[in-house]
Write a protein that binds this DNA or RNA. Structure first.
Lengths: 156, 156
DNA sequence: TCGATATTGATACCAAGTATCAGTAAGTGA
DNA sequence: TCACTTACTGATACTTGGTATCAATATCGA
């Protein structure tokens, strides 16, 4: 994480409740429970995980609140190859994701070169480009550490 | 489509039946029906679409055959933001996809700059990069033509 | 406080995909 | 060609992820 073009800066000012109010939605106890829980999570999550974490809030309400937050641009929905999509708080406006293929941890990053490539592709793609999505699959540092520890225990 | 770095070359030699046999799977009438149908499609497709097209083949068999083909690397599975994943024949070994957000048409492309960006990101991402995925959302040329025709009829 | 209305959550439902398993087809050796 | 083993099939039931419905309830401005 050395280049100035790469940013994973986290803003502490994310307030999902405000994002809902800004869209004219009421601040209810159920919605507050959902947004508080999401803000308390450090990683990406699935809708079902949130339902399990909040047994006092109905499934329909959890799904509805997530949808509102995605519509508001406060959450990003990340389609996963197998299984339910994951959601993460959109802390950086336009960004891409790293997904650890071992533990599923999702990170955000932004790299100016990716945007430059998109501009250069614009001349070469048949049709009008209206957006793009990029995911980088990694083995994250903590998994690498675990793997190394595991190997040293087993093998020597 | 002018640059030599961008390739959408289609090889006519794709044979999904062989891909299955190479994995030690039997060449059965049901599997042949599925692979023939897929080879006859010009565009990406969903599993359910294939089930509808092949009423004589069981749903389970269609899903199983698709899974085998994906495992064999002969099909690529494309997670879509909402709805069922789409599948397309993997004609180019490593490639990315363009997805028309109006008609859903999926194209393949390969661009050397994308790979260069990946190599430059390797130094800057926390963890080991093991792969990546990129989709470009477009309005394809035929949709643009349709839209233009529709506008000229309605507005002028 | 009142009343209009947005919201909730239990429930039923739908779509996509998988597990099960008895019956069948395919390959193989005699 | 036959018999036999084993892979494969497909009907079915099930699971998972998510949405629609709707009566009851909470919210918030007047």
């Amino acid at each position: 994480m050395t280049s100035s073009t790469l940013s994973t800066t986290r803003s502490a000012e994310v307030n999902l409740g405000n994002a809902l109010e800004d869209r004219g939605l009421r601040r209810t106890t159920a919605r507050t429970a959902v947004t508080d829980r999401i803000e308390g999570l450090s990683d990406a999550f699935t809708a079902e995980q949130l339902c399990r974490d909040l047994p006092g809030v109905g499934r329909a309400t959890v799904y509805r609140t997530i949808r509102h937050l995605v519509d508001a641009g406060a959450l990003c929905k990340l389609p996963i190859l197998d299984g339910a999509p994951m959601y993460s708080i959109a802390r950086i406006e336009h960004h891409h994701h790293t997904v650890c293929s071992r533990c599923g941890a999702v990170g955000e990053f932004r790299h100016s070169t990716v945007e430059r490539v998109m501009r250069s592709l614009a001349n070469e793609i048949d049709g009008d480009i209206i957006g793009h999505r990029m995911e980088i699959f990694i083995t994250c540092n903590s998994c690498l550490a675990e793997l190394a520890a595991g190997n040293s225990t087993i093998n020597g």
